[in-house]
Design a protein around this nucleic acid. Sequence first.
DNA 1: TCAAAAGTGTTCCGAATACACCCATGA
DNA 2: TCATGGGTGTATTCGGAACACTTTTGA
Lengths: 222, 222
Amino acid sequence: MKVTVDAVVFSYHENELKVLLIKRAFEPFLDMFALAGGFLLDDESAEDGVLRKLKEETNVELDYLEQLYTFTDVERDPRERIISITYYGLIDPVKHDLVSNIHAKEVKWFPAYGVNYIPLAFDHKNIYDYALERLRNKLQYEPIGFELLSQHFTMNELWSLYNAILGRELDIRNFSRKILSYGLLNESTFKQEGGVGRPSKMYEFNKEKYDELKKTGLNFEL
Amino acid sequence: MKVTVDAVVFSYHENELKVLLIKRAFEPFLDMFALAGGFLLDDESAEDGVLRKLKEETNVELDYLEQLYTFTDVERDPRERIISITYYGLIDPVKHDLVSNIHAKEVKWFPAYGVNYIPLAFDHKNIYDYALERLRNKLQYEPIGFELLSQHFTMNELWSLYNAILGRELDIRNFSRKILSYGLLNESTFKQEGGVGRPSKMYEFNKEKYDELKKTGLNFEL
DNA sequence: TCAAAAGTGTTCCGAATACACCCATGA
DNA sequence: TCATGGGTGTATTCGGAACACTTTTGA
C-alpha cells in the first residue's frame, strides 16, 4: 500500500489568512492546484516526510506542524490505493517567499477564504476544509496565533489575526486584557515604526514560559 | 510500506472504565498484551479495517469510532517499516461479552487505570495514553458519554461515568441541570428496577435532536 | 414511619461583556 | 494643538459553583 503525506500550510500577511498551493507538474490532475506533498519514504517519519516535500516543492520551512487526519477512502486516488497522512502547518510571514522549482509548475499563496472557488486535485478540498476548521478551533484554546506573526508584533496585529481567522470582530480591550493575563508575552524592546498616532508596544511570545506553564496545567482560552 | 490499524476500545461496566486488550498469538511480542488491530487490506478504508479486525479478534461491534492519530516512527515495529492508523472506540456495556478465537490467545477487559502496570506490545502504550487523553477531553465538549451506557440510563449512572473517566467528583445537581439544559435527553418510559430508595427517572439520548442542533451550532460543554 | 436515594431551589462569586475616557506621539 | 491610534478603568450581566431542603418510593 502506498502512503503519501500532504500539508495545508497557512500564513498571515497583507491582513489575510493565506494558504499555500502548488500547480501540479505531473499527472494525474496535471496543471491543477493541490496541496504540497508526496510519497513517504521508508526511512523517514511522516513529519520528516512532510518537511522534506515542503522544502522540495515550495522551499518553505515551517514554524509549527501538527498532524491533521489520515484519509483512507479506497477511491481517493485514481491511480491506485493510496492513503494520505495529512498535516497543517503555520509559518512566520517573514519566511513566506516562495521559490519555483521542478516539482511544481507554480507555487502560490491563496487567500484562505477564496480557496472554495478553486478546483483542487484529489480530495484536497476536503483536507483543506478540515485543516481550516482545526486551525479555527485550535486558535481558541492554544496559543498558536503567534506562529503566524513575526517574532515582534503589536497587540493590534495579533487581534487582527484573530479576527481574520475567526471571522468575527472581538473587543480589542477585552482581547488584550485576556491575552496579557496569561503572562505568555514579553514586552519587546522593539518599537513600532512609521504610521500615524501613538506607536504601539511590541511583544514577543515567551515559549519557555509557555512550556513551563503547560506542565502545571495552563488552560489558554480565547 | 505496510499499514496497520489499531483500536483502543473503551467500555464502562462495574462502575469502571475498561479497555479491551488481547494476548498476542503470534510473533513478535508473542503472549504479550496488545491493542486489537492488524493489517489494512487494499480494498477497505481504515474504518472498515478496524471494524473487521475487531470482529475477528474480539467479536465486539462498536457504537462509536473515531480516528485518533497515525503513528509513523521508523522504528516502531521491529519487523519492518509499518505505520499504524489508530482509532478509539466506545461500546454499549450490554455488548461487552467477548469471544475467544484463533486470532488471539485471550481477549479481556482491563481496568483503564491499571493498564500502566501491564507491558504492552509495540508502541501500544503510547497509543493507549493518547486515546485516554482524547476520551477525557472529548467527554467534556461532546456528548459521547452516552455511548458507554445502555440505551436507558439514570442520571446517576451518567454522573458516575463522568466522575470515573474525569477522575474528579462533579456536583451531581449542577451536572444534572447542565446536561438536561441541552435538551438532548428524552425521559424514557423505562423504570429503574430494584434498589432501595426512590427509583430514578431513566433517560435516553436523542441522537436525532443532537444532529439537528449540531447544524445550528450547539456547543455542549461539561 | 423510616431510611435511602432522587429531585429542586437559591445564594454567591468570578469571569466575560460592554462601554468611555485618558495618553502618547508625529505632524 | 490636533488628529490618530494606543492603552486603561469600571459597571453590568451571566453562568458556574456551592450548598440545603423537600419528595418519592419500598420495606
